[in-house]
Amino acid sequence: MKKALIICAGGMSSSVIAKKTTEYFAGKGVEIELDATSASQGASTIAQDQYDLYLVSPQTKMYFANLEKAAVKQNKPIVNIPPQAYVPIPMGIEKLAKVIEENI
């Protein structure tokens, strides 16, 4: 089981997206789980090194540079989520899943 973490602002949309994407993977038999956390806790969470991939939401991409430093330290990939992959509709989830599978 691999784990990915969405880093976003307040968790209003990411919590839903994380849940739906995890369900999507489960339905496909892919062993990946998603969690979500807020940008303020992003760096400290990365430092604990419990995830295989970090995803930065479109509205927090200004923090990307900082978060990237933390991720590089743990030698873990980190990517920006494209806006069209950040909606909990089936098409958005599918796109996000693709991004995750390509980077994890």
Partner: peptide, 21 residues
């Protein structure tokens, strides 16, 4: 601002607008 990043329409019938901060 939030909507410039991605849509807040979670389904054809449901929209969940929220601030970034």
């Amino acid at each position: 601002l939030r909507e410039t990043y991605s849509s807040v329409a979670f389904s054809p019938y449901l929209a969940v607008p929220h601030p970034i901060e």
